[in-house]
Nucleic acid binder design. Structure first.
Lengths: 266, 266
DNA sequence: TTTTGCGTATCATATAATAATACACGCAGC
DNA sequence: GCTGCGTGTATTATTATATGATACGCAAAA
């Protein structure tokens, strides 16, 4: 049915991508049948597409169980991404310094629609698995990083975002009240950083400072997560925030002018 | 021409993947014409495939320059990979401890054909960019990690690998003499670890210890890179190797039995 | 101004993807 | 040990779908 834009839309390619997207936290290894079920494609199509992805090295296949798994090529995609994102190269050395200085986990996040994406992570303490790996997407409104970035936007956009961006409950203490989130964002406007507690994980304090880009708008942030067992909000503000802001500010200059915020997604 | 396996090979999908692979260290941002040139596809095909990838969120497009770039989805691929690789979850906390203990860069690498892939990196010191990001592929024979893993293979396989696996020059001091590499591997067989100098970068000392998997064969290794300006080979062996081996050995047990080395690529 | 290169859009053609079908295998229950 | 189900695999005729030549508009270069 040549759905989207008719002639310049290749359905087979799109279907192949659906196979790739079928793998996530809870589906780490899929059989042909599962793949077909999860993608909604019929058995034959799944077979052909999965086979192609296997031959092309995008999917590994267990010779015994015949189940498919993401291949190392998936990591190479990240490798290529890192080279293409000018921010990463600028930020990395400074983030390393910061993490060594603080002795706490430091992250680089970017805005992606109404979500944030962890682009680089420098774990210094043992934490839960998801906090140690890159590529995670979280609703921006539920994270200190998202709020810190949003705080650099014009008031009208802030309000619209607080109103409309997606939310999801992660812990019993995740804030779902948009008014409260709005206040947190406005606080970040005044402070120049954002701090939050127990949004993604219980007893976790997150604090973030925006990396100012073109037009004064931030599309990235330096973020730091610490345990509420060893830290208090006040101590974080006194001891971490200044260094966090210094780091973010040190990264910002290179991005004031170039790269006009462009590069839109679909 | 339905090249590979005729009926269960979807050419359009494979072509789409070629577009993705066109992005690398030196090609971080490509125009339609460049994309066509690099993939060998004609203009129309490139146009349709790139458009599809854009619509599906795999490629960002600068509205002004009309050039394409890897999107955040490329990082999400890495995210999915991490969940699917059982080794990462097991290793991560121990790697964090090790890096904090040593105060030096610690890496987790896996074997992928005759190359190694950096699966996780915990940089503690500023280094060159490529050493801070995951997904990099390097010829196994040129790396301490590759040699450490190879050393766990049967003698015949070791010999065949030393003879046949690919090599490439990275620095003036990269060893291209296969006899010498063979000796290094045999040394690793005796020592249980491998150490090398200036293979990838001048004045860099690399040392690696294998993570023993099923059948006593290693498909992964814990690796550590330090600067020859502040370290000597002997000091590395005395101060780093023991802790490195402890860490690798602590990760190994879970992989002695399960996951029969399977999951072959194409 | 002319030329060149690029991104975009359209269209007739037949190639290449489709989905139905059939077979082989392992496993559960009976 | 037989039967039936679920799976992975393989083959086929059919036509929908991807193709690539062609043409247009717009820049920047000559």
């Amino acid at each position: 049915m040549r759905s989207k834009q008719d002639t310049l839309y290749v359905g087979s390619l799109a279907k192949g991508l659906r196979l790739l997207r079928a793998f996530d936290e809870e589906h780490t290894e899929l059989s042909l049948a599962e793949l077909a079920q999860r993608t909604g494609l019929d058995k034959s199509a799944t077979q052909r597409l999965a086979n192609t992805l296997h031959v092309e090295g995008m999917l590994d296949k267990d010779p015994d169980t015949r189940r498919f798994r993401p291949s190392h090529a998936w990591l190479q995609m990240a490798y290529a991404y890192y080279w293409s994102d000018p921010l990463v190269g600028q930020a990395m050395p400074k983030l390393i310094d910061l993490s060594q200085d603080l002795g706490e986990t430091v992250n680089l996040t970017e805005l992606s629609g109404d979500h944030i994406v962890y682009v680089s992570r420098l774990p210094c303490k043992r934490t839960y698995f998801a906090a140690t790996i890159v590529g995670r997407r979280l609703p921006a409104l539920s994270t200190s990083a998202g709020r810190a970035m949003l705080a650099t936007f014009p008031a009208a956009e802030r309000a619209a975002a607080v109103e409309g961006w997606s939310l999801r409950r992660f812990t019993p203490t995740t804030t779902l009240d948009r008014d409260e989130i709005g206040k947190s964002v406005e606080q970040a406007v005044r402070d120049g950083y954002s701090i939050s507690t127990g949004q993604m994980i219980l007893n976790e304090i997150g604090v973030a400072s925006p990396i100012i880009g073109p037009g004064g708008r931030a599309y990235a942030a330096v973020q730091c997560s610490v345990s509420a067992h060893t830290w208090t909000r006040d101590r974080v503000i006194q001891e971490i925030v200044p260094k966090l802001q210094d780091t973010a500010n040190a990264i910002s200059p290179s991005f004031q002018t170039q790269r006009g915020g462009g590069f839109s997604g679909a």
